[in-house]
Design a protein around this nucleic acid. Structure first.
Lengths: 235, 235
DNA sequence: TTGTTGACCAGATTTCATAATTGGTCATGA
DNA sequence: TCATGACCAATTATGAAATCTGGTCAACAA
């Protein structure tokens, strides 16, 4: 009952797949709902049975991608709790964004014109990680320093710079992705982590908590993706 | 002989003044050479006696502003050599850019459309500070750590993030300028400075060297501003 | 009854031809 | 010798017509 498996549910994801593919290929502006419907093998009206507007559809695309990316991080964390150390965690995130065409398209599209508020969308995509609970927990376990002013602002402003420097190769100097991740890793270790990292058992405990927090956080987001699905709603 | 004082020299600066004012008011695109000439109280053709193209004229505007800003930094340094400590130095620079409408217009314009390559221009404006000699000197005197990977890239990517986060108030969360400078200061102190800062006399020595380096570096740039001045060139 | 569809519509976007502007030149005059 | 603004080619603004697209819904299918 929790999951109504069936054609309709798979269909929402097929629509999102089609939208994601076209978003990467053409950019938000040039993708039409009809293109999406055609690629998904359904009628145009059907798309609107799932989301009310084009923007909501693409927010769903973005959110699904973000969740998948957070889950990839959590998997890494389960394999190796030491990945919770911010310098590993953050640089790993940076590399993962580069590997995900949808997120990449967003951070690159940010620099180009377009009606869609890429910037908001992109930062929204990282909102998951920015929850206060997460930061509080990390500080409590000695993973983040407790004296960083405006922790979440500071971290996100810094990351914005690296993502944009990445997207527009602004300067003649080529810096490869690996080296960028190394720079991020260095900065985070020295500016955001306390001098003494927590021991292995503290780390394991913290990792378990973080995993629990996100596992609790993800389902509502996932629900939102299909929230406007009127397929099974009462008339 | 080195300085041919006279009407012509003052005129170049009056043109730059006019161009700067209009740049701030209207943006690069909407400023016409004729506007500039009129505001400067001269004929249109006269502008072209000083610079060959509109772009070169605006590069001169930008460069003049950058020099003035570096000189302001050097003044601060002369008053207090401890300002050479990167966390003070960098956050001070950040605040100064915010106070200079021309530089501000550039970093904000970066986010908007426009033919002029704001990004390049803006980074170009910071090129002065990015000279290898400067970094080498700072490291040698123990002001920058010697183990930061890609020092100049890392620092500029980080600053780009803060400037852009500043320009587009992307997130709902308002963070005031003072708090931003505080964040920058914190990051730089912890990520770019060695654990032990140099003592006062080392600092004074380093400051003197930095001042000397820039004082040597500035004149060629200043010359470039007026380099295309055909006023006094032999026919 | 329930779910799906594509014709349909208003509003947004593109097109395309014409008008107006502007960067840059240079013959003229101070 | 230096300054100027009329002048030109080329870019850009304008606006009306044609096209496209997000979103709706009556009709149809299961």
């Amino acid at each position: 009952m929790a999951e109504r498996a069936g054609q309709a549910d798979g269909r929402a994801d097929r629509i999102l797949d089609a939208a994601a593919e076209l978003l990467v290929r053409l950019g938000y502006r040039k993708v039409t709902i009809e293109d999406i419907a055609q690629l998904a093998g359904i009628g145009k009206g059907t798309v609107y049975l799932h989301w009310r507007t084009k923007q909501q559809l693409f927010e769903a695309v973005l959110l699904r991608e973000s969740i998948s990316y957070v889950e990839e991080l959590l998997d890494g964390l389960r394999r190796d709790p030491a990945m919770l150390l911010p310098h590993r965690f953050v640089s790993e995130s940076f590399l993962m964004v580069g590997d995900r065409p949808v997120l990449r398209a967003l951070s690159e599209g940010y620099l180009q014109q377009g009606r869609y508020r890429y910037a908001d969308a992109f930062l929204h995509s990282q909102e998951l990680l920015a929850s206060e609970r997460f930061y509080g927990l990390m500080i409590r376990h000695g993973l983040f320093r407790d004296d960083v002013p405006n922790l979440s602002y500071t971290l996100s402003a810094m990351m914005l710079g690296f993502h944009l420097h990445d997207a527009a190769n602004l300067i003649g100097v080529e810096v490869d992705t690996r080296a960028r991740a190394e720079s991020i890793s260095f900065m985070v270790r020295h500016a955001f982590e306390p001098p003494e990292p927590p021991g292995p058992e503290e780390l394991a405990k913290a990792a378990a908590e973080v995993i629990a927090v996100f596992e609790a956080l993800i389902p509502p987001y996932r629900t939102w993706i299909y929230a406007h699905d009127r397929t099974h709603e009462p008339g």
